[in-house]
Every structure is written in structure tokens, then in C-alpha cells.
Write a protein that binds this DNA or RNA. Structure first.
Length: 419
DNA sequence: TCTGGGGTCCTAGGACCC
DNA sequence: TCTGGGGTCCTAGGACCC
């Protein structure tokens, strides 16, 4: 059996831990620059505020109902996530951290005398007691069915109390006959539209399609999903999570007009990405840079350029990466207002293979320099030490009107409780 | 006025190799 | 008339996830 543990309305729940006075109100957390809604409380969902809604469209609705909004505080959410995941590790021999707010736990081979439901309830209460974050848990013979069970747990809180165990054929069929096809894990907008047209309305209908058709139309991914929903496990727990690509991008509050402005931002992205790269002990073999105009401005012709560079030898030196990024940017840049830019590092390799490269005079020097730089920045604060071209810290503040304190990661933001 | 960010996996087609 | 076959690598593009 697999368990899927999912934090309820995660970002909003993180904020509520420190602001219990706001419980019961419609709350949303916004994306960077307070752009769109990325997390909603139950009360906000009840008002009909959709996920991804532009803030300016729902602001007055929220005000009318005495709601509140938060700018995104990823330092806080990341730290709360780490705490939740750490607690979950205590409950299973292996765990896959699937996203910031979700984890799959391997419950295979558990003593059949243990009630999985009781065990999960214990786990849920424990996480809540230690972090204040409410979770829902779905348990089933496959990962896709655990996702389904999790939906059931969330949808019927009164009966399920946050935990649903889908452990026999009757329950499986019942759940699949209930679940709309668009809510299946792995069926997105495109496929649900096509499937609906074919009369496939529920997850159960999807499992009644022929293997051949599914394989043919939806590739092996679709077929795997069908098997999983039928109860045949195809996906396993993937514990080690070495990323295959690392990307950093931003939409700017104000458009950038010159090469040097764009270049400065790109170098900042590169140096952030390089830190992540070194944290997972990887080297990048390829770097991509892209720039684009405001895609919502309909009158103007959209502008989008991207370019790649092969990094030979593969590297994780900020200095090397910045050099390549400049070359690429020079190649693709055209004077045009830039609303969004980003970089992606890919073709990642483990860094121990570095020793195999024969001629690279900078390698050792950079390696030690980067190590020192990371250490200093870890100790004294992000970007205390940086390469010269990189913009000064905080020069480009995000447009954030209601950012909560970093309660758990910054001493000066620690919560003060008055007696 | 205002519209996020970071990932994964798969396929098809072309180039190239033996 | 007819024009091999199989493998690998790369790229572009699509679809999906949270």
C-alpha cells in the first residue's frame, strides 16, 4: 500500500499557523509581484475565487467579505515543508517528497494486524500537533489510487476525518465512479476535454477504454495511469531526488528596456541556480537563456527569444556560467521591452566526474572559490559575497504589499508572545 | 494599471553512425 | 519498378504536475 499525504491549502495554512486570528476568513496567498492567487482557504474557495485568478480581478470580492491576502513568503513555506516532511519520515521506511506540500509513503509490507486507518490518523494528528499544518491522507494499492483516496478524504471531511483507505475492489469502483475524469492525476485540461467528448466522464469510464486505444492515443504515460487506476502498481517510490534541470525565472514588475538591465538580472538568476546546482552536487552541461515581452499585451507582436550554450566541460562555477550566459544573451537580445526572463541549467551530471576532464585550468581554483563563497553566504546571509556584475541585493525588490515575517528562518522575525 | 514559478516525461523527426 | 536496418543523440514541442 502507498499513502499520499497532502497538506491542506498549504501556503495559506502556513500563514495561519502564525495568524490564528484570521481563521475562518477568506484568505489567499499571491504569486510574485502579487500577481495571481496561488493558495486559497476553504472560505476563499467558497467565494468562487479560482486558482490562478489575477489578484486585481478578485481584490474587491475579497474585501467585501472581510478577507485578507498575503504576498508569497517562500522562505516560510519552504521551512514549514521541511518540518512536515521530517515528521513524516518517522512513519515509513521510505518516502518520496513529491512536492512542497505532498509526500508518498511506502506502506508496503506492513503488518496486516495494524489498522492503516488508525496509523494514518495518528500521523495526521502528530503532524498537526508539531507544526500546526493540517494534512489529508489517502491510502491505496497504487500511487494513482492513493491520489484518488486523498481526494475522497478531502471531499468528505465529516466521514473521513482526513483519512481514507481504499483497500478493496468495491471501494475502488465506487471511488472511480465518483471521480470526474478531469480530477484524475495526470489528466489535464486537454485530455479531459477530449475524453469528455468521447463520453468518458468519470475515472471509471477511463478504465473501461481499451489498453490499445489508451496506449495509442495517450502514450505509455496514459496506459501506465490506466493500470494504476485498475490497481496494478506501475509507479514506485522515488526517494532520491536529483533534479534533472534547474531553472530560475521572473516576471518583472516593470519592463526592462536595456541590455545591461537584462544582463544584470540574468546573472542574478545564474548565480541563484548555480547555488542550487552545487547544493545537489551537480555540474551543468547546458545552459539556456530566454527573454520575452508581456504576453498579455495583445496589440503588440509577441517577442520571445531563447538560446542555448553547451558547457564544455560541464561546470557549476558561477563565474563560468555567467560568462556563457552573457554570450547567449548577446546572441538573442534585441532592443524590446522585456517583461519576463529566465535561465535553465540542464544536462546535469554528478560533480565527481569532474576529475575526468583533462584540461581545465580554472576548475580547481573556481571549485575552491565557490565553496568559500557558499560558506560565507550561508553564514552571513545570501549574496553577502557575489560576483561583481551581479546586481546589488534587494535593488529589485518584488512588488509585495503584504509579506508576512519569516517567523521560522530569521531571528529578527521570531514570534513574540506577550503574556 | 494589474496576469507566477519550478519541475517532469514523452514523441517525432532529422542527423549521423555502423 | 526497385533504393537496408537498427541504434543513438539531439532538438522542438506538447502535456502534465504542484
Amino acid at each position: 500500500m502507498f499513502a499520499l499525504v497532502d497538506c491542506n491549502n498549504f501556503y495559506v495554512s502556513c500563514e495561519l499557523v502564525f495568524r490564528p486570528d484570521l481563521r475562518g476568513k477568506p484568505l489567499v496567498v499571491l504569486s510574485n509581484n502579487d500577481g495571481c492567487v496561488i493558495s486559497r482557504s476553504e472560505e476563499a474557495k467558497a467565494l468562487g475565487i479560482p486558482m490562478g485568478a489575477p489578484f486585481f480581478e478578485i481584490k474587491s470580492l475579497l474585501n467585501i467579505h472581510k478577507g485578507a491576502f498575503f504576498s508569497s513568503n517562500f522562505a516560510l513555506y519552504g521551512d514549514m515543508s521541511r518540518r512536515v516532511m521530517q515528521l513524516l519520515q518517522e512513519f515509513a521506511p521510505s518516502i518520496e517528497i513529491y512536492s512542497v506540500d505532498e509526500a508518498f509513503l511506502d506502506f508496503r509490507g506492513f503488518d496486516s494486524k495494524i489498522s492503516l486507518r488508525d496509523y494514518a490518523l495518528q500521523m495526521k494528528n502528530y503532524v498537526y500537533r508539531c507544526t500546526g499544518i493540517p494534512v489529508s491522507i489517502g491510502i491505496a494499492p497504487t500511487k494513482a489510487l492513493a491520489k484518488v483516496a486523498n481526494k475522497v478524504a478531502k471531499k468528505f471531511p465529516a466521514q473521513a476525518k482526513g483519512v481514507y483507505v481504499l483497500d478493496d475492489e468495491k471501494k475502488r469502483v465506487k471511488a472511480l465512479k465518483w471521480l470526474p475524469v478531469e480530477d484524475i492525476w495526470g489528466i489535464g485540461r486537454r485530455w479531459s476535454e477530449r475524453l469528455q467528448k468521447l463520453g468518458v466522464k468519470k475515472a471509471f469510464d477511463f478504465t473501461q477504454l481499451s489498453d490499445e486505444w489508451v496506449r495509442d492515443q495517450m502514450t505509455v504515460v496514459g496506459l501506465r495511469l490506466k493500470k494504476e487506476l485498475e490497481g496494478q502498481s506501475c509507479l514506485s517510490i522515488e526517494e532520491v531526488h536529483q533534479k534533472k534541470s534547474i531553472s530560475i525565472s521572473r516576471t518583472f514588475y516593470e519592463e526592462l528596456q536595456t541590455f545591461s538591465e537584462v544582463y544584470e538580472r540574468i546573472v542574478t538568476f545564474v548565480s541563484r541556480a548555480a547555488v542550487k546546482l552545487r547544493e545537489q552536487h551537480s555540474l551543468a552541461g547546458m545552459l539556456m537563456v530566454y527573454i520575452r515581452s508581456n504576453r498579455f499585451r495583445e496589440k503588440e507582436k509577441p517577442f520571445f527569444r531563447e538560446g542555448v550554450a553547451s558547457l564544455s566541460p560541464s561546470t557549476n562555477s558561477t563565474i563560468e556560467l555567467a560568462k556563457y550566459a552573457k554570450l547567449v544573451l548577446q546572441r538573442i537580445y534585441e532592443p524590446h521591452p522585456i517583461k519576463k526572463a529566465g535561465i535553465v541549467l540542464f544536462n546535469l551530471l554528478p560533480d565527481f566526474i569532474r576529475e575526468l576532464s583533462l584540461f581545465n585550468p580554472y576548475q580547481e581554483k573556481h571549485e575552491r572559490l565557490m565553496e568559500t563563497m557558499d560558506k560565507i553566504n550561508n553564514k552571513y546571509g545570501e549574496d553577502i559575497m557575489r560576483i561583481a556584475i551581479q546586481e546589488a541585493p534587494l535593488r529589485h525588490r518584488l512588488h509585495q504589499q503584504n509579506l508576512s515575517p519569516c517567523y521560522t528562518t530569521r531571528w529578527k522575525d521570531i514570534l513574540i508572545v506577550k503574556a
